[in-house]
Design a protein around this nucleic acid. Structure first.
Lengths: 346, 346
DNA sequence: CTGAAAGCGCTAACAC
DNA sequence: GTGTTAGCGCTTTCAG
């Protein structure tokens, strides 16, 4: 299938008794080659197991069909699901990925990462790092200097940037409204870390739903977690003591919601009768929690796919010297999956 | 930080009034450059934001400092954790990754994937796809033809291959022995899909532990799942009917174990008093299941790190014209985390 | 210490 | 139809 040393176009040309140019024409399916020459060259190519070097091609064509992907937190399921979408769409569209994972979510010095990708001539960059702290600050300064298109995932709207994201505010609001509809009136919240933009959006959605229902929102109704089950446990305990009348809770992700369910079980609080619980994410396991968890489902796979589609669109556009359209913001609305943890009615 | 068009070495040379070779010497920290020339060139480089092209370098040096990573199932947490280890170790060792994800675990036609990686001049390949069905069959034929080193994760031992893996058999055996120690005598098993090598290993470990304890192992004591919580539920129901005396169960992964716990809870079976449960994986959430889950912890991050270390070692070795050492098999022993779901004593 | 020439593997532009 | 020349951006001889 492969020869031990990769053959070069020169060797193929020699073996087929033609010039390298002719071989080039054959491998690129150019029309102006005599059918029988083409045939002969093809045969030699197969025999030698020749594969053209994508590197050499990239150099001369000034185009690599390679995308840089910058991510963080692959040990968590969310970023991985997004990456899964990115890889599958990239494969479909004929692009290869260079992967970089930041060691921390809040890495601010992204210069070496971007430099490395650019030195490898990526055609575009997908920035799939959640917005945490100041970690997106650099876009203000550096962006116009980066010579390839970038599409961002999951960040606050900024002018002139292409962004693909899920509407966290909306999802949180829908979740909270569902609890209100079920007749719960004292609805607490366990948030993600407040330096995460997504956490703030989800909290804002929860808060807005309560206010629109004419309820007040006090600080004591919210506790901060860090996405882990462990932090969810402490947050729940804290919340119970500072907000004893709580009869329902909107939790910013499913893993923390899981430990709320577990604690409730341990303390003999019946869910959903005494406590309604709604999570966020739509983990595959969430229907198998006890009781099954009502949650806001976000399709991160689709998010990844769309991002790749979008960046390829921008790349093609720029290359075709078309008038670049304004950067787009693409927003997906997540959906509420209603299950047992929040159904009080009847 | 970056100029809008990437500067070339030629432009830098011209601006600094030297030849391109001199610039080359400066960026490669070669000794034989006059200090003041070096200084001048450095200044120009900074001003122009010049970054050498890794592509051009790879071409001429016949070395790219790039690794191909082939994975599958990134939407599951296991493969992602491994990938997380791979990225971090690659970063540490100065390698960049080209990522390919197979669309199915049992993809047999890997030729286009490998070709693509080779055409991009990867220095080595990490094959991080679990062994399922015939999906590793190709190694028998194609391997010697692939001109770069490959290291495999998680596959059956084969001669002449470098493999890094976790000892699934051992982990499963330890888990089962633990249940025996706790006094359980009728120990069932929910396996993963039997076309997975890992599933077969875990089942074999369970079976061996029972036999060594002088217990018989019947087909009725085992049911097959497909790793998902959903399949765990059906498998558990089936197992209860075909093996009613079951007092403990070793489940091949945590997600299926989760639904066993949930079903037990729903049916009023008390864990661990009436039913001992042990899982496999060591998911971060597993301590927060109810009751907290005893599980075999596998460090997939470490697995990924080690794989990269190993392949870089082989690459260096081959490049240094050293006598290649025999391909290694590196095996990690997983550890049992004992928690409430299996503690019957006292 | 520095530069000129050659070439990594390929393709664009032109000849014939 | 096909070959020649030039060059993508860099490094490796080898002069000087």
């Amino acid at each position: 299938m492969y020869n031990n040393k990769r053959a070069t176009i020169k060797q193929v040309a020699k073996a087929a008794g033609v010039s390298t140019q002719t071989v080039s024409r054959v491998i690129n399916n150019r029309p102006d080659v005599a059918p029988e020459t083409r045939e002969r060259v093809r045969t030699v190519i197969d025999e030698m197991g020749y594969q053209p070097s994508a590197l050499a091609r990239s150099l001369i064509q000034q185009r690599s069909y390679t995308l840089g992907v910058v991510t963080a937190g692959l040990k968590y399921i969310g970023p991985s699901r997004t990456l899964n979408g990115i890889t599958s769409q990239a494969e479909t569209m004929g692009y290869t990925l260079l992967l970089k994972e930041l060691s921390h979510f809040d890495t601010e010095d992204i210069e070496p990462i971007v430099s490395n990708l650019l030195s490898r001539h990526v055609d575009g960059i997908v920035w799939a790092v959640p917005e945490v702290g100041e970690n997106h600050q650099w876009v203000e300064h550096a962006l116009t200097d980066i010579p390839v298109p970038i599409v961002f995932l999951t960040m606050e709207k900024r002018p002139k940037l292409s962004i693909v994201k899920i509407d966290n505010y909306f999802g949180a609001k829908v979740a909270t409204e569902h609890l209100l509809q079920q007749g719960y009136r004292h609805i607490g919240h366990i948030s993600g870390p407040m330096d995460w933009w997504e956490s703030r959006q989800r909290k804002a959605g929860w808060s807005a739903a309560l206010q629109e229902a004419g309820l007040t929102v006090a600080d004591s109704q919210c506790a901060e977690g860090n996405w882990s089950s462990s932090s969810g446990e402490s947050a729940f305990i804290k919340l119970r003591s500072q907000f004893p009348e709580m009869d329902a809770i909107f939790v910013a992700n499913d893993q923390m919601a899981l430990s709320v369910l577990q604690q409730a079980c341990r303390q003999g609080i019946s869910v959903p009768a005494q406590l309604g619980v709604v999570g966020f994410d739509g983990l595959a396991e969430s229907p198998y929690y006890w009781p099954s968890l009502t949650t806001v489902v976000q399709d991160q796979h689709l998010l990844g796919c769309t991002t790749v589609e979008e960046i390829v669109r921008v790349i093609e556009q720029r290359r075709g010297k078309e008038i670049p359209t304004e950067p787009q913001t693409i927003i997906f609305q997540p959906e509420l999956a209603v299950r047992n943890s929040s159904i009080r009615s009847k």
